[in-house]
């Protein structure tokens, strides 16, 4: 564990807490894509299958439970909680996200580090996470401007994988034979998809107005 990795996990945790804060306290999911949340629930469900078979550390297990619990409860809130569901923008959140799942599964079956059940699903979760933000970014462009909490949520979610890239660079230079092209390329694609969001998000700070 290095500082970049810890910063990445804390940023990821912060993004989840900001979204839960928004949904749980003001009972609103305005501007949030349910489809991205559903994809993230699948990402964590397929990435943390080994949560019961291989124990790494209390921290690792705790964080996996937090990410699993929060992603599924956010989906539940947005689908079934009356007050929250009412604020969900169904008409605008129309990205065909199921069309992302199958290609990621096929790609994981073709390109992986080891051909085992756990490994293929783990690789699938990497590919799926790389594109999971697309429905949210499309919704963002349709929704005129978004509230600060949603903007902060997306900013933190995009930043966490960028910090992971710094962690991989650090590990590459400090650990012999630390080479994982699949993880690196998936992480890079994921972070690059946020590029224009980051651009407008920083403009907001300079301009001092909402995220247009």
């Amino acid at each position: 564990m290095n500082i970049f990795r810890l910063a990445g996990d804390m940023t990821h945790l912060a993004s989840v807490l900001v979204l839960l804060l928004k949904i749980h306290t003001i009972k609103s999911c305005a501007g949030v894509s349910l489809r991205t949340q559903e994809l993230y629930a699948i990402v964590f469900a397929t990435r943390y299958l080994d949560i019961f078979t291989s124990f790494v550390s209390v921290y690792n297990t705790f964080m996996k439970l937090v990410f699993l619990g929060s992603s599924f409860s956010i989906v539940w809130y947005m689908r079934y909680h009356k007050a929250v569901h009412r604020t969900y923008d169904r008409e605008q959140d129309t990205f065909r996200h199921w069309f992302l799942v199958l290609p990621c599964l096929v790609l994981a079956l073709l390109i992986h580090e080891k051909f085992t059940f756990l490994e293929v699903l783990w690789t699938f979760s990497l590919y799926l996470e790389a594109v999971a933000i697309l429905p949210q970014l499309v919704l963002l462009q349709r929704t005129r401007n978004i509230d600060n909490l949603t903007g902060q949520y997306i900013f933190l979610l995009g930043g966490y994988r960028g910090l992971y890239i710094l962690n991989w660079i650090y590990r590459y230079f400090t650990e012999p034979h630390f080479v994982h092209w699949i993880t690196w390329i998936a992480g890079l694609v994921q972070t690059l998809l946020y590029a224009d969001f980051f651009y407008y998000y920083f403009l907001r700070f300079i301009g001092g107005r909402g995220v247009e």
């Binding site: 564990m1 790494v56 690792n60």
Partner: peptide
């Protein structure tokens, strides 16, 4: 991969 040195990552 899960067995290798990435398994401690989230």
């Amino acid at each position: 991969s899960t067995e290798s040195d990435l398994k401690d990552e989230l």
